[in-house]
Simulated assay, not measured.
Amino acid sequence: MQIRFLVPGNVRHGSGGNKYNAKLAEHLTALGADVETVIVDGDWPVGSHTDRQRFADMLDGGTTVIADGLVASGAPDEISGAINAGTQVWILSHMALADHPDLEAKALAAATGIICPSAHAAAELETRHGTQRMVIAAPGADKANLAEGSQPQHIVAVAALLPNKSQLELVECLATLQDVEWSAALIGSENADARYAAEVRAAVEHYGLENRIKVTGELTGPTIEAQWHKADLSVLLSRSESFGMVVTESLAHGVPVLVRQGTGAVEALGHTEAGAALDLTQEGALTDSLKRWLTDPTLQELWRSNALRAREHLQGWDTTAATVLKALATPDAG
């Protein structure tokens, strides 16, 4: 099968969506598909008339297209035109658009089908736009070396520094726990929202935590693996999250995770009990949970053993790709 995979050119940091797209393309290829990944420049999610025309040109050819929702959800007319010309257009919706719901609704309705990375993301689209033909293809997790942990306990928060990811909330919480030993690293791009990143750095300095909290920037390869190697706990406090691939990445390293209730990260954590999903509408919930974990070796060992057990049952990216390939081959099923 020939697949043209259209991805946005205006997301330049290591987002979960970008990582998902790259892994999906890699493993579709491994399953025998002929995948052409095309970066679509433009001011997405809507773009200019010229941007949308460029997108429309890439839909031409009567082939099968997977288009990232950040590009496709603002261009319903272009999708309709392509489908009428014989092109299958699947929208890979990592997360519903914050703005432009009318355009998104029309684009999803026009598409051949919709690929979602989680049941949480699919349910959100259904709530907003009604029943659609959706296929859930949860992210896989790569095999990873087992974390060794640290003394004192080392906490990692792996996400771009963005308001939605709530690193400020974590810094303010850790500032109240200075009587307990720990170290922490905030690992993620500072370029996605430079103002927020500066606020996070300023908070670390304000609380005098420069020697305990490292703001590392985006790390890849051996440098991120070195952080996972010494990690004891991973924290993902996103206010909205379609899945949260860092959760399964954590579990792949045998590292338990704290996530926020009401997000797709709860789905990623599943029923592993390798950490907890916190109701952060309750005052002090994060502080209480972190202090309990930091001061209770029995809880540390329980979460760690549950993470090791979960590590053995993580889905691979080959399963993700097989789910997508099956859907593309049977567009009228379901």
Rank of each mutant, 00 (worst) to 15 (best):
N84L: 09
L59E: 05
I114P: 03
A285V: 01
P163I: 06
Q178D: 14
R260V: 10
E249H: 04
Q153W: 02
D99T: 08
V247H: 03
V324K: 05
T295P: 02
L108T: 14
L258G: 07
V204W: 01
L219V: 10
K19P: 00
L125Y: 10
F55W: 02
A307Y: 01
T63A: 12
N191G: 11
T330N: 13
V255M: 05
G284Q: 06
A185S: 12
Q88E: 12
H229D: 15
S305K: 11
D288R: 14
D193G: 03
R304P: 09
A327C: 08
W293F: 00
P297E: 08
W228V: 08
A123G: 04
H120R: 07
G47M: 06
I39R: 08
L59D: 13
W44R: 05
A265E: 01
M95G: 00
V257N: 14
M245Q: 09
G275R: 08
S189H: 06
L236C: 08
W90M: 07
T319F: 12
T263W: 07
R195L: 10
A192T: 06
T127S: 15
P163N: 09
C173H: 05
L174S: 13
P101L: 02
A75F: 00
D43H: 01
H94N: 10
E124K: 08
F55S: 13
G17W: 07
G130K: 02
W317E: 07
M58R: 14
A321F: 02
T263P: 03
V200H: 03
A265M: 08
T248F: 10
L108S: 12
A123C: 02
K106W: 01
Q261W: 02
Y207I: 13
W44K: 04
G275D: 05
E169R: 13
M245N: 01
A175G: 15
A265H: 03
E148Y: 02
D232A: 09
R212V: 15
G69I: 03
A67E: 13
N18G: 09
G208Q: 09
R311W: 05
T63D: 15
W44C: 01
T37H: 06
A72T: 11
N145P: 03
M134V: 14
E148F: 04
D77L: 06
V204C: 11
V11Y: 00
E169Q: 11
S250F: 07
L24D: 10
V324D: 08
S73E: 14
V7Q: 12
A105Q: 14
G86D: 13
A67F: 06
G284K: 10
W182N: 08
L302P: 09
L31E: 15
D279M: 09
V135G: 07
G32D: 13
